[in-house]
Design a protein around this nucleic acid. Structure first.
Lengths: 242, 242
DNA sequence: ACCTGAACACCGTTCAAGT
DNA sequence: ACCTGAACACCGTTCAAGT
């Protein structure tokens, strides 16, 4: 009765010769995350997209939390680490930060996951080692090295996660316009500096914008933050004469 | 049959004279979030704790997303802004960052929410104004002011969110020990710098730790990051001669 | 080893009705 | 205005069984 030509592909079925692999599932999960957001990445939807049943997805990835961790790893592997030795350490750290941000902008919904999970995974560890190598070359060592790494990594990852946060799913149509109006009409008496600089702040500053960084990238803001981090790192270096 | 003395308070009922207010609900929501985590903050649990029905909670706060936003605001209001004019701008910015972190450590599960939501709310805007005032006093203006604000705020909020991220709920008992062992035994051939500095990194550096900042605060790491941010901000200032 | 088919428990949300 | 009682839709997860 359920003959060929199922137009809607509603019953899970698909021309597949090779059996499904864990990698297939994770890759499809990333696609779904990119297209539909974190809430849209449902085990059921994923199964449907793969032409199987939920239990099959579970067989391959364990559960949703593990799937998300693997998706994060997949994205971290997209990061192309700058060549060592060709750049001075400030330029190298800047280049890696830009590359990290570039990859996260390709997968905006992953940025928050990186920041919210306690990831200890091969792709992450590999990145750590390369950053440590550069900081060590700059003259860092021991506790200072660890501190500098945490300061740099935490700033970059955290800042980009903040940039790429998204609007509440709850929000209706006119929501953005409403907020834009609200922000643009803050009372100058109460908030003189916001009012005086409103053209540089409205829609562009944290807590005063109504679009995530995916809709409206904060390119100049990131470059300024990058200058700040790099200049500040130089300050953490042991005195040259030391 | 269901006489008095319901020992378990299982059926929602509670001695309450005053009707429930929206604030009551939000405050109870924060309590639940602090005690049980984000996944534990369920509309049903919240209703039970308040001695009512889920629909009552919805009547007061709309839906879960709006509840979370209000909880964030409640926490932001705990922040005690340092007095203006008594501190030089670098010290004032450092004091505010420490105070922000202190409040977030009181409510570790809120730190990630601040970073993941596009909040535009009165408590947030008030904080923005005070930071802008200090940056302006330091000599910032216009686009540079906005950039410096974003660099500072994004770094502080992002870094603390990263520090306070939590372990996957999925993790079993021996999970932390397993990870500790894995990290402590990274092959020195592949990861020479991690191996060489393992005592300063294991359990303390991003991507190499197995506890969130709530279990193991990164006090020194934060102070180092703070030095980096402040020193870097000075670098963003217009030249004194300008 | 890999997949099917169906079910369970649970949670956000809503609705009609009460006071 | 504020609350009750019950229901709906949906989603993560599991289980027994197939090949």
């Amino acid at each position: 009765m359920t003959g060929p030509g199922a137009q809607k592909a509603n019953p899970p079925r698909k021309g597949r010769s090779r059996p499904l692999s864990g990698d297939d599932v994770v890759r499809a999960g990333l696609q779904l995350l990119d297209e539909q957001g974190l809430a849209g990445l449902k085990m059921r939807s994923l199964a449907e997209r793969l032409g199987t049943y939920p239990a099959t997805v579970y067989w391959h990835v364990g559960n949703r939390a593990r799937l998300l961790a693997q998706v994060v790893d997949l994205v971290l592997e997209e990061i192309e680490v700058p060549e060592a030795g060709r750049l001075a350490w400030p330029d190298w750290l800047a280049a890696l930060a830009r590359e990290y941000r570039r990859v996260m902008h390709r997968h905006p919904n992953v940025a928050g996951l990186v920041a919210s999970q306690l990831v200890v995974s091969p792709p992450a560890i590999r990145l750590v080692e390369t950053v440590l190598a550069v900081l060590a070359e700059a003259g860092m060592d021991g506790q200072a090295l660890a501190d500098a790494f945490n300061a740099y990594a935490g700033s970059v990852i955290g800042w980009v996660a903040l940039e790429l946060c998204s609007a509440p799913a709850d929000a209706g149509e006119g929501w953005q316009d409403d907020f834009a109006r609200t922000v643009r009409s803050v009372p100058a008496a109460e908030y003189p500096l916001i009012a005086a600089n409103i053209d540089h702040l409205a829609g562009q500053a944290f807590a005063l914008r109504w679009q995530g960084g995916s809709q409206r990238p904060m390119d100049e803001g990131f470059e300024a933050a990058l200058r700040m981090w790099i200049a500040g790192l130089a300050d953490l270096l042991p005195a040259p004469g030391g």
